[in-house]
């Protein structure tokens, strides 16, 4: 249905407009990462990636 696609597109554009001020604020005002901050972020995110791959592998068996 084309009107549904159009409506979903309007929703996504509205979300973009909604998020834009927060994105602008945080791009300007985010504190700089200190030593070890990125490693502390990448460790749990890496575990999430492995966990999701594991879940997908289990259900595909």
């Amino acid at each position: 249905m084309d009107w549904m696609k159009f409506a979903y597109a309007v929703l996504v554009v509205a979300l973009l407009i909604f998020i834009f001020p927060a994105a602008k604020y945080w791009l300007k005002n985010s504190p700089k990462a200190e030593r070890g901050d990125w490693q502390a972020f990448l460790l749990p995110i890496g575990l999430v990636v492995l966990f999701v791959i594991g879940l997908m592998w289990i259900v595909s068996q």
Partner: peptide, 14 residues
């Protein structure tokens, strides 16, 4: 303090 991720996460979401 993970607030350094703010810019990265919001731009990624955009």
């Amino acid at each position: 303090d993970f607030s350094f991720l703010g810019g990265f996460l919001f731009s990624g979401l955009m």
